[in-house]
């Protein structure tokens, strides 16, 4: 009996705490991200206190590989995460583990993020244009990666068969770059910093940039279906903070002049310094690969549908996965390219 009283008392105390306005003022959440500029809005919102403005006490959890943040959402270690969209992501989302609620970075013309490069040998043998990709071998991280999808879009654009390209899976950029330098492959997809390095070493030639060739919805903001169902106001508050930070990012780094050239925004230096601090890298290095991020976190929804269809066609995502079920478009207004 005595035990029961203590238990009842504890429950009552918890209930009081739970209802108190103090606790409501700072709801604890955890956010997962990779230490990349594409996660910029998360770092900006944290640094400038936008989450706190929305009554959220956000804790950042950093990951080292793109496969990890969605898993952390499924396991409940983080409430929100941003990362690139891969076939693995859709397999996880298709099982009901995560739902996309907004946009992260986007491949967009004028923003050189990922380069297509040809080795000197392949260049000398006439591989000088992205149109000539058929029959070539290319170093990628893995099948089902964002690189794989970019190649798929490229194949569609230039009308070659993506299956005629031999994808060498090397499970990491160091191994990919080593294979490229050694002439083991004809081509590579490589982030801008690596591309500039390879080019200046004379290891190969840049043929083009994914963003210029085939813009697509590279990354997304996502949460768990449980959060959407049970903590909807919290999710809405999070999205508001995220949008505010994304707008600042967009203003600083994604502004274009009348001629369509990317120019520095009024808050460029402040934002660059903020991101450099968060990335623990010199600002000059950060400035090389700043991606396009929609100011309001709006998604290219049509591309998401296309991604799912592409992966299903390649046999990498289960046929039962439905793009519509993976998305929750109710948190952000004005998404693009909605399928009818």
């Amino acid at each position: 009996m005595r035990k029961f009283h203590i238990f009842a008392g504890a429950v009552a105390a918890l209930a009081v705490i739970g209802l108190s306005p103090v606790a409501q003022a700072a709801e604890k959440i955890a956010v997962g991200a990779l230490r990349l500029t594409s996660s910029g809005p998360i770092f900006i919102a944290l640094e400038k206190g936008y989450f706190r403005e929305q009554g959220l006490d956000a804790e950042l959890k950093l990951f080292t590989a793109a496969t990890q943040p969605p898993l952390a959402v499924v396991s409940g270690d983080v409430d929100f995460a941003v990362t690139g969209l891969t076939a693995g992501f859709y397999n996880l989302a298709g099982k009901g583990g995560v739902k996309i609620i907004g946009a992260q970075s986007r491949e967009e013309s004028g923003f050189p993020l990922i380069a297509y490069m040809a080795t000197n040998q392949a260049w000398d043998k006439g591989f000088r244009s992205l149109k000539d990709f058929a029959g070539k071998s290319v170093a990628v991280t893995t099948t089902g990666s964002t690189f794989h999808y970019s190649l798929g879009l490229l194949a569609k654009k230039y009308g070659f068969d993506v299956n005629s390209v031999t994808m060498r899976q090397l499970n990491g950029l160091p191994a990919m770059q080593a294979a490229f330098k050694g002439g083991q492959v004809d081509a590579i997809l490589v982030p801008s910093v690596g591309a500039r390095a390879l080019e200046s070493e004379g290891a190969g030639k840049i043929l083009g940039w994914v963003g210029d060739e085939t813009p697509w919805q590279l990354g997304a903001l996502f949460t768990s279906p449980k959060n959407i169902a049970e903590r909807r106001p919290m999710v809405q508050a999070f999205v508001r903070a995220y949008q505010k930070a994304a707008s600042e990012y967009h203003k600083a780094f994604n502004a274009k002049d009348a001629a369509g050239k990317v120019v520095k925004g009024p808050n460029y230096d402040e934002m660059l310094a903020l991101l450099a601090k968060a990335m623990e890298q010199p600002p000059e290095r950060i400035a090389i690969g700043l991606p396009y991020i929609d100011a309001l976190g709006r998604l290219d929804v049509g591309d998401i549908y296309n991604q799912v269809a592409f992966w299903q066609g390649a046999g990498l995502v289960d046929k039962s996965v439905d793009a519509k079920a993976v998305l929750d478009l109710s948190f952000v207004e004005g998404h693009f390219n909605l399928p009818r």
């Binding site: 496969t67 891969t86 076939a87 893995t142 089902g144 899976q169 499970n171």
Partner: peptide, 21 residues
């Protein structure tokens, strides 16, 4: 089998992990 292997148990495990299968 991280090194560009198309087949192999190790490559299969890696790929399944990446694809969350």
């Amino acid at each position: 089998e991280m090194i560009g292997a198309q087949y192999g148990i190790g490559a299969f495990i890696l790929s399944a992990g990446n694809l969350m299968q």
